[in-house]
């Protein structure tokens, strides 16, 4: 067994699920720059000037937050590709059967997210396929393999603008 060494650059530190404390500068950095980064040759210098500090400190903070897994990156968020068809599906599964049925659902390559929710509809998953015909085929197969009916709840309209969310939530 090898111990975690902070000197190995490609070794990602284990993700912690404990709350990581942030100071005021770090909070401002995260709140104000989730939705946009200056598109100038020197974005970190610009941020430093806007926050009244040095570029070196901004880079040091971002590196630390990235190394500890608080941020996944400083970079692009892509719009989900509109190609293909997808839906949100829900099933109502007896508690004793949930893990077994969830495994069957997760094994479908068309399923990307699959999670439990506290409700009579306790299994929720997103299904995607290249076109609506193949999506329907996957939904039918999901019902057959699990033996449970599903609710097919495709998105009809989107109202939010995704800008991340502030740390006062």
């Amino acid at each position: 067994m090898t111990a975690y060494s902070p000197l190995q650059p490609n070794h990602r530190p284990p993700r912690t699920h404990e709350k990581i404390p942030l100071n005021d500068l770090e909070k401002r950095l995260l709140n104000e720059y989730q939705k946009g980064l200056p598109l100038s040759p020197t974005p970190f210098q610009d941020i430093a000037e806007q926050l009244g500090t040095s570029e070196a400190l901004i880079l040091q903070i971002l590196q630390r937050l990235q190394d500890t897994g608080v941020i996944s990156r400083v970079g692009p968020v892509f719009k989900p590709r509109k190609i293909g068809a997808s839906t949100l599906a829900a099933m109502s599964i007896p508690a004793t059967e949930l893990v077994r049925v969830a495994k069957i659902v997760s094994d479908f390559p068309e399923v990307n997210h699959n999670y439990e929710r506290e409700d009579i509809y306790n299994l929720w998953f997103v299904v995607t396929a290249p076109d609506s015909e193949r999506l329907q085929a996957a939904l039918t197969k999901l019902e057959q393999r699990t033996g449970y009916p599903l609710l097919d709840l495709p998105m009809e309209r989107q109202y939010h603008i995704d800008l991340g969310f502030p740390l006062w939530c």
Partner: peptide
């Protein structure tokens, strides 16, 4: 063109205790 929705600091809220 809408391929990149935004450029920014991408926060893993789960790591900050947003569970």
């Amino acid at each position: 063109a809408g391929i990149i929705k935004r450029m920014g600091v991408v926060v893993r809220h789960h790591e900050l205790g947003y569970t």
